[in-house]
Design a protein around this nucleic acid. Structure first.
Length: 259
DNA sequence: ATGCCTCCCCGAGGGAGA
């Protein structure tokens, strides 16, 4: 089963980009972030017509996540537990059943800039709640993964110019430590389980020709429970998508798992 | 790089993104 995560940067503005990609690359499951649409405005029918079940968790204006799946989606839940006052749509979970069942969590982790400040405080608090959910997934001892736009550059090699990010919420030591704390529960970071070295990125800014200069960062990740990592065949970044017409500033990241 | 684009809100220009 091939599962992709893709920050689409506006599902309505980029519906042609999305449907072309779904048709040509044909993920079994696509986990979307930054759909920037309320659930009622989501272009559900167009995607269903391509053979996908659609589950959304949107809000007005920004954020918003979704899971698209050729197989049925079961036990769908919306919102990251731990703060009933959090209005931001950044988390959705569902179970997909192939040969085995896998719990798929889609996340859009807060950006956190400027740091320090209230937005950075929100990012760190959100990561605390993510840690708690991650502990529960580990305790279940079942195939599960958390994927999406983590807004975390894990290591200097994950940025073309790490010094440019030194004071940024995506790369501050405290941000990276919070990410490591989750990984160190025993998750496998799928891309680094399969590929070493620099120059592998999942985001390139629209400005100043960042794509043409390959001035990117790797911030879209898959974290797999041990039972899911046992099933991992491959992980890759579909970087050529960034060079197509009307691209998102992110590209899809994929895993292939034996499910 | 204190933002060079692009999305959303709507119907001008500001918030948000990373």
């Amino acid at each position: 089963m091939k599962i992709a995560t893709f920050n689409i940067n506006g599902v309505k503005a980029r519906i042609d980009t999305l449907t072309t990609w779904l048709t040509e690359s044909a993920p079994d499951v696509a986990v979307l972030q930054e759909v920037k649409s309320v659930d009622e405005g989501f272009p559900r029918q167009i995607i269903e017509d391509l053979g996908y079940n659609v589950e959304t968790h949107g809000q007005k204006g920004f954020n918003g996540v979704a899971i698209l799946s050729k197989l049925p989606l079961e036990d769908v839940t919306r919102g990251l537990p731990g703060d009933d006052t959090d209005e931001q749509a950044r988390w959705i979970e569902a179970t997909v059943i192939g040969d085995k069942a896998v719990r798929i969590c889609g996340l859009y982790l807060p950006n956190g800039n400027p740091a320090p400040g209230p937005k950075y405080d929100y990012k760190l608090a959100w990561m605390d709640r993510l840690y708690t959910r991650a502990c529960d997934l580990m305790s279940a001892e079942e195939p599960a993964l958390m994927c999406g736009d983590y807004n975390i550059i894990p290591q200097p090699e994950d940025a073309a110019h790490p010094s440019a990010w030194a004071d940024d919420a995506l790369f501050l030591p405290q941000s990276r430590a919070a990410f490591r704390k989750i990984v160190n529960l025993g998750f496998t970071e799928a891309f680094r389980a399969r590929h070493a070295g620099p120059a592998h990125y999942s985001f390139w800014d629209y400005q100043a020709g960042a794509w043409d200069r390959n001035d990117g960062i790797r911030i879209d990740h898959f974290l797999l429970t041990p039972q899911c990592a046992d099933l991992l065949n491959d992980c890759w970044i579909e970087s050529d998508i960034r060079g197509r017409e009307k691209p998102s500033d992110h590209v899809p990241v994929w895993v292939d798992i034996s499910i």
